[in-house]
Computed example of a mutant assay.
Amino acid sequence: MPKFAANLTMLFNELPFMQRFEAAAKAGFKAVEYLFPYAYDKKELAAALRDNGLVQVLHNLPAGDWDAGERGIGCHPDRVGEFREGVTRAIEYATALNCPKVNCLLGKLPAGVTAADARKVVVDNLRFAAQELQNAGIRLLIEPINTFDIPGFYLNRTDQALSILDEVGSTNLLVQYDIYHAQRMEGELGNTLSKHITRIGHIQLADNPGRGEPGTGEINYPWLFKHIDSIGYDGWIGCEYKPRGTTVEGLGWRSALTQ
């Protein structure tokens, strides 16, 4: 049976952020993930995990000015220094929280920057980040994002992500495979997971359309969960969906779709 981690950015969002750890534990989750830890004290976050018997499985590198619409800076030629500073900061938090994986959102292609120039910056940045994180015992991920939700996002397909892995050439860099984004951009979920599971370091889920709970849309999650088990994935699956009501009211999918 798959292991599900509550994404605290999306789930229990009717509560203040620091109260979501307790809510996740009470709802039966053993692990959590969320976008960014940087607005909170490391010791406070570590205590919330410890006090509620939770492990943190993922957070993201700093991604620029999120509130202003930025979604990462990994493809920005003029912000390499800021990117590298973000790697150092991510290592500090991941180490304090015993978080084994950090995801890099590569961002939107900047105006006036060619795809070729952005690719060079991406590869150089990821080589640096992968080595620094490897030295700290932390795995680096990159995530394709659909261009319907985030127009202009640089990385949007699995094959593109894999080609970047090939060029970077680090064993410490893997793909974060978000089922929702993959469904919107390319489909072929089962075959893609089967073919590339050894290069996928983390999985996330939501249904489509609407990014709701599994079972609310077109994706055959009962089949997909069994398939993920059958191909040997034993990592966490992050629940990064938008609850239709309260989070707890919508959690029936866990038992209904995993029998």
Rank of each mutant, 00 (worst) to 15 (best):
T246K: 11
A24L: 10
D178L: 08
A6M: 02
I138F: 00
P144H: 11
L133F: 08
G137I: 07
R79E: 00
F36R: 15
L189F: 10
F21Q: 00
A118F: 05
C239Q: 10
C239V: 02
V123I: 14
K43A: 15
L15C: 07
R139C: 09
G53K: 13
F225Y: 13
L35T: 09
F153H: 14
D51P: 03
L189G: 05
I200H: 03
T246D: 05
L11Q: 11
R79P: 02
P62K: 13
I228N: 02
E143V: 04
N7Y: 08
F83Y: 15
E33I: 03
G201H: 00
A94F: 05
M10D: 00
N7P: 09
V55A: 04
Q183R: 11
C104W: 15
D166W: 04
A111P: 05
Q160V: 09
G210P: 15
E14R: 07
P222W: 09
S230Y: 10
V80M: 07
R127Y: 12
E240W: 11
K242S: 10
E143R: 13
R199S: 12
A130G: 03
H227V: 01
T158D: 15
P37A: 05
I73W: 12
A48M: 08
H59C: 13
I150C: 14
T216C: 08
R157F: 11
Y233E: 00
R254L: 09
A206T: 01
G250Q: 11
L61K: 06
S170M: 03
T114C: 09
I231V: 15
E33G: 01
H76S: 12
Y233N: 03
A27W: 07
E85W: 08
F148P: 04
R71W: 09
E186G: 01
A25Y: 11
T247L: 01
C99W: 01
K108V: 05
Q204S: 14
P243W: 03
A129N: 04
M10R: 14
T246E: 05
G74E: 12
I203S: 02
L162W: 06
A136P: 06
K101H: 07
A47C: 07
I91Q: 06
F12A: 04
D65F: 11
F29R: 09
L155R: 13
N172P: 00
N220G: 00
E33Q: 03
N191W: 12
G190W: 10
H196A: 10
H202W: 07
L11K: 09
C75I: 13
I73N: 03
V87Q: 11
N191L: 14
L224V: 01
I203F: 15
A47G: 05
R50Q: 11
L54Y: 14
F148M: 15
M10P: 04
L45M: 06
A96K: 06
N13W: 03
A182S: 10
F83M: 00
A5P: 02
A116V: 05
L257I: 08
R244C: 11
M185W: 12
L155T: 13
V113R: 06
I164R: 02
E82R: 04
G74I: 06
L140Y: 06
P209R: 04
D159R: 02
D207G: 15
A130Y: 15
L193G: 00
